[in-house]
Design a protein around this nucleic acid. Structure first.
Lengths: 248, 248
DNA sequence: TCGAAAAATGACGGTACGTCAAAAACTACT
DNA sequence: AGTAGTTTTTGACGTACCGTCATTTTTCGA
């Protein structure tokens, strides 16, 4: 019992540190995140922070793991939505966009993680967790593609296999988010709603694959509405709120 | 005259510093790049390096500008290749992939640039140069899309305009490169040739747009061959060499 | 209440950034 | 050539952050 209470306290502080780190990241950006600062805000000393995280990068990857777990949940939900496989892919893609809008700087964080020198410094355990989650996310989409082929929605292509299709989706989505994160003047380029542009690009790919059933515009609009009201009602609200805050 | 000689010397050293920075970046990664190290390798003192670059970030953006100038050249060539508009888009996309394979860590570099805190620190002049180049690159592709619409290759879509289409291409390409740069085990996911997967994804988007004339496989193969032997013969050779070196 | 074990602390060594006063090199004029 | 004035180069310095570890403080059972 005593031990357990102690453990609970430690876990709580662990979460506290992560939360503080996330706040700093969201409000002041990555370059302002430092161990000293976390310790200061948490009113602990640096050494204590180091008892929870072997290094700065370890905090980063644990935040990422947290993010990806959320994302995994969203994807799972989308993958089991009551619709055909084609629309499920769109649902997952949409979930990714929604997620990026929801939290602050989450995409940014993920980008930093994939940068040079991070994977080398991080705990083996965290690395495995991270890679496992990544596998899950990709696997989920991959399975839908395969299911679609099995169920006849999608014809097998000679020159592009399921994993390559998934890679294409993944590139489109994460690339689009990256471009949004770096302070590009997208409006100047003539893009008012980047996320919608990305979803429509995805649809282009699906159409290019001749993935049945093809949409007409009204079906597509209805589908989006279902996402916002049924599947991701809560997330949609948060995303809207978050967007409003930004423009204020 | 005297002044001019001086200026030439300064320009030469400027280039030297940039070259050294590029080498360090390519061989040891971003986290090993430091002003001290550049000075040491160049056999100058730190202060002298700071006379050329106001800060570390300034070196980064100037390297990026150099990269983007090269890229701009490739894109220009591709945009005037003797073929239809559809194939020109593919040529530009292909150029981007080839470029990423050519140099070392160029994509990596560009990613670092778009990260938080860099744009704030950098010279106004460099920033403008960079943004101008970016505008050029995007504008080039945008123009091809518009031309294709004018020439009847591509029908105007109600719900996705030219800039959004370009944004889709851009996301796909840069996202794909990002995923390759972070040390993802793409083979494990079932992807043997990521760049080909990306090009094929692009073709899916074009097909989805019903951008005429549609390809059959043999046309596509021939087109790629033309890129490798006519349009980008030199770059293709360098890219192959670079790939071999990596696998050694 | 006490003493051993566990936890928290912050001084310390190290690295890198960016600055600036002093030293060195260069120029032009006598 | 010698010298005075200007420009360039230098590296020591102040600051910030990382990660470590000996010392101090707290905890907890006897």
């Amino acid at each position: 019992m005593t031990l357990s209470r102690k453990q609970r306290e430690i876990a709580k502080r662990h979460a506290l540190f992560l939360e503080i780190a996330e706040n700093i990241l969201a409000e002041e950006g990555f370059h302002m995140l430092s161990m000293e600062r976390i310790a200061e805000v948490a009113e602990y000393s640096k050494g204590t922070v180091y008892q929870h995280f072997t290094c700065k990068e370890e905090i980063l990857i644990q935040l990422c793991i947290h993010c990806m777990t959320t994302l995994n949940g969203l994807f799972e939900r989308a993958a089991h939505f009551d619709c055909n496989h084609r629309d499920r892919v769109i649902a997952i893609f949409y979930a990714h966009q929604l997620w990026a809008m929801t939290g602050n700087n989450q995409t940014d964080m993920m980008m930093h993680l994939s940068m040079d020198g991070v994977r080398e410094k991080v705990t083996e355990k965290s690395l495995q967790q991270h890679d496992q989650l990544e596998q899950n996310l990709v696997g989920l989409v991959n399975k839908i593609v395969l299911d679609a082929i099995n169920d006849g929605e999608l014809k097998k292509h000679k020159h592009i296999q399921a994993p390559e299709i998934v890679f294409g989706f993944w590139s489109l989505s994460s690339g689009g988010q990256m471009l949004q994160v770096c302070e590009l003047p997208l409006e100047e380029f003539g893009i008012s709603d980047a996320n919608m542009a990305l979803v429509r690009s995805l649809v282009l790919m699906l159409d290019g694959l001749d993935w049945q059933p093809l949409h007409n515009e009204s079906h597509f609009k209805k589908l989006l509405k279902r996402f916002n009201t049924e599947l991701f009602a809560e997330e949609y609200a948060i995303a809207c709120e978050s967007m409003n805050k930004k423009s204020t």
